[in-house]
Amino acid sequence: MKDKAVAVVMILLFISAMGTKGKALPRSAMELRCQCIGTHSKFIHPKFIHNVNLIPSGPHCKNVEVIATLTDGREVCLEPTAPWVKLVIKAILDK
């Protein structure tokens, strides 16, 4: 009797493992494109910046992306090579 129960459990585990192979992640779990179409390089005073997200380059996008959320809720893509943006990134990484 025990042997049959163990065999049934093993078969169920094997079937469930086979069923998960090759499934794609939901689109919300991975974004496969760049978030920034264009970038903003003019200085934005830090008091107007609520949050900054730094997204490194990778398979989803060849560019490093810096996305600032402003205090009014807008999101702005910043030019990562602008001197003032480099200072912001350095300050974030130093924290």
Score class of each variant (00 low, 15 high):
residue 8 V to H: 12
residue 45 H to E: 13
residue 16 S to P: 00
residue 17 A to G: 13
residue 14 F to P: 07
residue 58 G to K: 09
residue 88 V to S: 07
residue 72 D to H: 12
residue 42 K to G: 10
residue 60 H to N: 11
residue 5 A to P: 02
residue 43 F to D: 07
residue 52 V to D: 05
residue 39 T to I: 02
residue 6 V to I: 14
residue 88 V to T: 11
residue 14 F to Y: 14
residue 44 I to P: 00
residue 83 P to Q: 13
residue 22 G to T: 02
residue 31 E to W: 12
residue 32 L to F: 10
residue 45 H to K: 07
residue 58 G to D: 04
residue 90 K to V: 09
residue 34 C to S: 00
residue 26 P to Q: 09
residue 35 Q to K: 15
residue 51 N to F: 01
residue 59 P to A: 08
residue 76 V to Y: 05
residue 2 K to G: 15
residue 29 A to G: 10
residue 44 I to K: 07
residue 68 A to Q: 07
residue 31 E to A: 05
residue 38 G to M: 09
residue 7 A to C: 07
residue 70 L to G: 08
residue 84 W to D: 04
residue 11 I to G: 01
residue 68 A to M: 03
residue 71 T to N: 12
residue 37 I to V: 13
residue 18 M to C: 12
residue 51 N to A: 05
residue 58 G to T: 03
residue 78 L to H: 06
residue 39 T to H: 04
residue 53 N to I: 04
residue 72 D to F: 03
residue 2 K to L: 12
residue 4 K to D: 06
residue 95 K to G: 00
residue 28 S to K: 01
residue 12 L to Q: 07
residue 92 I to L: 07
residue 37 I to K: 14
residue 53 N to Y: 10
residue 11 I to T: 13
residue 52 V to C: 03
residue 71 T to W: 05
residue 33 R to W: 05
residue 68 A to D: 03
residue 53 N to D: 11
residue 27 R to V: 14
residue 30 M to Y: 15
residue 38 G to A: 13
residue 6 V to M: 12
residue 49 I to C: 03
residue 10 M to K: 12
residue 87 L to F: 10
residue 32 L to I: 12
residue 87 L to I: 06
residue 35 Q to P: 04
residue 10 M to Y: 10
residue 32 L to C: 13
residue 46 P to L: 03
residue 75 E to V: 09
residue 10 M to S: 14
residue 93 L to Y: 03
residue 72 D to N: 15
residue 83 P to D: 13
residue 95 K to L: 09
residue 13 L to G: 14
residue 69 T to N: 10
residue 9 V to W: 04
residue 26 P to I: 02
residue 8 V to M: 10
residue 3 D to C: 09
residue 36 C to S: 00
residue 94 D to C: 07
residue 24 A to G: 08
residue 49 I to N: 01
residue 1 M to T: 09
residue 60 H to I: 04
residue 79 E to A: 14
residue 14 F to L: 15
